[in-house]
Amino acid sequence: MASPFERISGDRPLPSHLRGGVVAIGNFDGVHRGHQAVLRQALDEAHRRGKPALVLTFDPHPRKVFKPETPLFVLTPPSMKARLLRELGFDAVVERAFTREFASRSAESFIIDILEGALGISCAVTGFDFHFGKDRRGGPTYLMAAGERHGFGVLLVDAFCDEGSEVVSSSRIRTLLEAGDPAEAAGLLGYRFTVESEVIGGQQLGRTLGFPTANMKMSPETGLKEGIYAVRFRRADGTLHDGVASFGRRPTVDDNGAPLLETFLFDFSGDLYGEVCQVSFFGYLRGEEKFDGLDALVAQMKRDEAEARALLAGVRPLSGLDGKIAF
């Protein structure tokens, strides 16, 4: 029987049965189709060698360390990234804390202390533009030479382009989500964009209108366009419900400005408070509007429900990963 997937954070030592593995290295924010090209190569190589398949990634995102004044819409926080890597078939993810101190270590220290000492790797798999160590002095050529010196293999994967010959990148996906285009973003991700959070109590206005919602706080840096979406909601026990969600910031409710995701689940009644749930975005229906009274609001909510039901009735998985995440 296969060992369970493991998340190894901070300086926690790697279990002995995971040493000697094939390790994909990178930040992998979004775990998009470009990242998946690297990750598939690592999985294939691990299978070929009969070794564990691991991912070495970093948190927080390096841009948040070097440019803390500039908000960054992180597509996949650590827990969501781990979920995706598990579904892809990896044995473990090693989450290293990224700090200025970590970034200042030399390229050779990264090789000796992390890859060789902490992980004992048999092969490293990275994108063609991966750099590491102080001042990014370690690059593909350095890594290849280090592999020869220290006795581990190195595989470099070229940039992955979409059907329009454009490189798939996290920044492109952020731009699409900020513009309210989750369908186009899903084409680059290879799965529907999904967020995860705990269901919290709300004002219960939706309940009084006949549209009770599951409320989830999002990171203040979430860049998703505000508005109404057709979504699929996954409970902690794995059950799925179609729904319609409103995403926006409500300063009168939440004085720290954190955005709120309010999801009305179709054909469901029950208590979700305290559950950590996931919401996958399938389509943008409309922007937020100000209505002339509750009757007009309820009428529009009924139209939103009908439109979302119609959209979700015809959806199919984009990939095997999408089938595991949103279906």
Rank of each mutant, 00 (worst) to 15 (best):
residue 18 L to D: 03
residue 155 L to C: 14
residue 300 Q to A: 13
residue 166 E to P: 06
residue 110 F to N: 00
residue 171 S to C: 12
residue 11 D to C: 09
residue 13 P to R: 08
residue 28 F to M: 04
residue 71 P to N: 09
residue 90 F to L: 07
residue 261 L to Y: 00
residue 66 F to I: 10
residue 281 F to Q: 12
residue 11 D to L: 13
residue 210 G to W: 02
residue 281 F to Y: 12
residue 183 A to F: 08
residue 242 D to L: 01
residue 133 G to W: 05
residue 309 R to M: 07
residue 270 G to H: 00
residue 184 E to C: 14
residue 105 R to I: 15
residue 117 G to R: 12
residue 240 L to V: 00
residue 284 Y to M: 00
residue 202 G to R: 09
residue 294 L to D: 06
residue 265 L to A: 08
residue 168 V to K: 08
residue 141 T to M: 06
residue 198 E to L: 13
residue 67 K to G: 06
residue 301 M to L: 14
residue 93 V to G: 02
residue 122 S to N: 01
residue 317 P to S: 11
residue 152 F to Q: 10
residue 211 F to H: 05
residue 87 E to P: 00
residue 257 G to R: 01
residue 234 R to W: 03
residue 275 E to P: 09
residue 90 F to M: 08
residue 168 V to W: 08
residue 308 A to Y: 02
residue 14 L to H: 00
residue 264 F to I: 03
residue 92 A to E: 08
residue 52 P to N: 02
residue 262 E to Y: 04
residue 327 F to S: 08
residue 68 P to M: 11
residue 164 G to K: 15
residue 36 Q to G: 06
residue 297 L to A: 02
residue 310 A to K: 13
residue 12 R to K: 13
residue 157 V to D: 12
residue 196 E to V: 08
residue 246 S to I: 11
residue 259 P to E: 07
residue 322 D to H: 12
residue 284 Y to L: 02
